[in-house]
Simulated assay, not measured.
Amino acid sequence: MNVREYLESMRALDLSIESKIRQEEMLRTRLTDTAAHIGGDAPRSSSPDKDKIGIVMAEIVDLQTERNAEIDRFVDMKAAIKDAVKALPNEERVVIEGMYFSHIKANEIMAQLYCSRRTVYRIRDKAIANLEKNKKVCHLCQLV
């Protein structure tokens, strides 16, 4: 794996974590709605609804387990490359941290650095080349 692939996998992992958080929120809403339905005044067979609650709770637990494993992996990956990114020149650091750690779009980075989109991508490519010169980073990418 090269540096760009490493950074992209970090970014994808972070987006996956965010997605799981949103899924969990939706499941919690579904759980609350189902529980409210059971507690309502209408006489119903509660067994199917209780089964739904159990299923939703199991989905939440599974999602939390997956999310926590991804968070651990993301934190480890980010910590491993953090020092190398901090050592980059300011513009390069801003672009790498923005694009890969904070999910800032190129347009926002353009405004922040007062440059063109093309320049943002040139800076990104230069930063990645500089990271690839770092033996620790190259070793790290080989481990993944």
Rank of each mutant, 00 (worst) to 15 (best):
S45Y: 06
V75G: 00
D72E: 15
D41S: 07
I71G: 03
A42Y: 08
D51Q: 15
V75L: 09
D62M: 06
E59S: 05
G54W: 03
M57K: 13
L88E: 00
S46G: 15
L88P: 01
T65P: 00
P43D: 14
P89C: 00
P43W: 14
D62P: 02
G39H: 09
R67M: 14
G39M: 14
V61R: 12
A80M: 05
V61C: 03
K82F: 14
K50M: 11
A69P: 03
A58F: 13
I81H: 01
P48Y: 09
V85H: 01
A69E: 14
I53T: 09
V61N: 06
I81E: 03
G39W: 03
K78G: 03
K82Q: 10
S47Q: 12
E66R: 09
M77Y: 10
A87V: 01
V56A: 04
K86F: 13
M77G: 06
D49L: 15
F74V: 01
A36S: 04
K52L: 14
M57A: 12
P89T: 02
G40S: 15
V56G: 02
A87C: 02
S47P: 00
E70N: 14
I55T: 11
G39I: 12
G39Y: 06
D51N: 08
D49F: 10
M57Y: 06
T65E: 09
V85R: 01
K82P: 01
G54A: 11
S47F: 13
K52R: 14
R67D: 09
P43I: 11
S47W: 05
A87E: 02
V56N: 01
A42E: 15
E91T: 08
K86G: 01
S45W: 04
K82S: 12
K86M: 04
D62K: 14
N90M: 12
I60W: 11
P89A: 02
I53L: 14
A79F: 05
M77C: 10
G39S: 11
V56Y: 13
R44F: 06
I60P: 05
M57G: 06
I81S: 01
I38K: 08
D49K: 04
D72N: 07
K50E: 12
A69V: 06
V56P: 00
R73E: 15
L88M: 02
I55M: 08
K50Q: 13
D41L: 12
M57D: 11
S46N: 09
P48D: 12
H37I: 10
G40V: 06
A58H: 09
P89I: 02
D62S: 12
E66N: 07
V75D: 10
K78L: 04
K86A: 11
M57I: 03
K78S: 10
T65L: 06
N90G: 04
V75W: 04
I55K: 15
A42I: 15
A79G: 05
V85F: 07
G39Q: 10
D62W: 03
D41H: 08
A42V: 14
M77T: 00
V85Y: 02
K50H: 13
G54P: 06
A69I: 09
D49Y: 14
R73H: 10
G40T: 09
H37M: 10
E91N: 13
I38M: 15
G54Q: 08
A36I: 12
R73F: 08
K78W: 03
G54M: 05
P43T: 12
